[in-house]
Design a protein around this nucleic acid. Structure first.
Lengths: 234, 234
DNA sequence: CGCCGTTTTGAAGACAGTCAAGATGCGTGG
DNA sequence: CCACGCATCTTGACTGTCTTCAAAACGGCG
């Protein structure tokens, strides 16, 4: 799966590494060094990229596509922790210490990833300390999101959590539309449920209620138009 | 509040900085450089160290004592996000970009902190890149805990979340005892409730139930002895 | 067009939240 | 050292929200 110089399937030459925020501080030449360290892989929709408990010795960067990161409880309930898309990375936990993955990662659509071996990446960090700063910044942002999610889970009801997640998706994937903000849900009802910690039936019911109240419009099962953004903000 | 060379109230000379994991990679001489940048403060039990929304331009390191970090919802419900003790730091979010605190921090007992201005700390990072690695490691650990907490909140009932938090405290503060592991609860019932996302009455009830079942023993309101660790692990 | 997976809808039941009252315990001051 | 008073914790009854189970409707895809 290793690609030499011209082997990137998706992007011309090394430009793909440039799209990754953590490398954005690097010069062209430096980038090409990085590119040589990269292993590329492609996953189809539904394929597992990473299994909880598996040895992981690489940092994985999403180049194109979408990935859900999640854990199972003993009873088989799934909790989605992250939704990664272009430019996001994961597997950073074992960057320094050897260890096992703490969550599963599954491609939600055809997904291209770049992988860099921990040892190689550690060298990069030594050579380019700015990358460390980028990572700190990104981890901080991730903590921010988790802190918000934790607060939601601990203090808000299902409807409020659903509203919050609709706003999250709108912010990330939304495009302008005459009636409001439009976007495609990245998950099925069950996925949304597992993201906000609710039952899928609850998600259905609440979503319909929001539509009845005129706050959102649903087109099919995936498309959402947020007509009254402020009503969701409560 | 700035202290010169010998002004540390609590520890002799610069040794206090040594207790802080993120500086553990530094040599004696380097440490003394760090110490010169440090502002020290002491807070009494109940005092606020940081208010959500306030400008924050320093990294804060807990030298001695205990700090709870929490947020309020619009309805006034409190969600505790972290429990910081000796060696932990916070305020790292604005290390690189100027910004406001995203949570409140309150001293749970008499607490000594060290503060380092962001600008100074950024220089430290430049001079000693290993500090960045320490921070990445710590942020990863923090993500780990939040991921676990989020999973608990999303998929488990109040009793399971309470059990998990008892084990967490036991691991952090527990000492061996003939009947099991003993420790003091860092929070009141209400605090525990706000940590696990439950009502204080629920915490009371579940705690009593665990005692009735012989899994734990409570001595007064603060002391807990975990008699059957495995029973809590479900 | 028909099938299968997903979504919706309904009804029942459980868990946890709220409100209210009483008990306990701790710190203070006499 | 005891007694008082306030804060915290416990207990009980009730309510509401969400989950669960079951069945019907929908929708996408071969």
């Amino acid at each position: 799966m290793k690609s030499g110089n011209g082997g990137c399937l998706h992007c011309s030459h090394q430009l793909c590494a440039k799209r990754v925020p953590i490398f954005s501080a690097l010069e062209e030449k430096e980038l090409s060094q990085v590119v040589d360290l990269i292993l590329r892989r492609q996953y189809e929709k539904g394929e597992m990229i990473l299994l909880e408990g598996a040895e992981l010795d690489s940092l994985i960067i999403v180049n194109h596509g979408m990935v859900k990161a999640f854990r199972y409880t003993e009873e088989g309930k799934e909790q989605i922790l992250y939704l990664f898309s272009e430019g996001d990375f994961f597997g950073e936990k074992n960057l320094l210490s050897r260890g096992e993955a703490t969550y599963n990662a599954e491609a939600l659509e055809r997904t291209h990833v770049c992988m860099i071996r921990n040892e190689d990446f550690q060298e990069l960090l030594r050579d380019y300390p700015e990358i460390s700063l980028k990572i700190i910044r990104e981890l901080s942002a991730r903590l921010d999101r988790l802190e918000g999610a934790l607060q939601s889970m601990g203090t808000k009801n299902a409807e409020a959590r659903l509203s919050a997640v609709l706003l999250e998706f709108a912010g990330k994937y939304g495009t302008s539309h005459p009636e409001g903000i439009q976007f495609d849900l990245p998950f099925s009802r069950e996925g949304i449920a597992n993201y906000i910690g609710a039952a899928r039936e609850t998600v259905s019911r609440r979503l319909n209620r929001l539509q009845e109240e005129g706050i959102i419009d649903m087109i099919g099962n995936k498309k959402i138009i947020i007509k009254d953004k402020n009503a969701l903000k409560l």
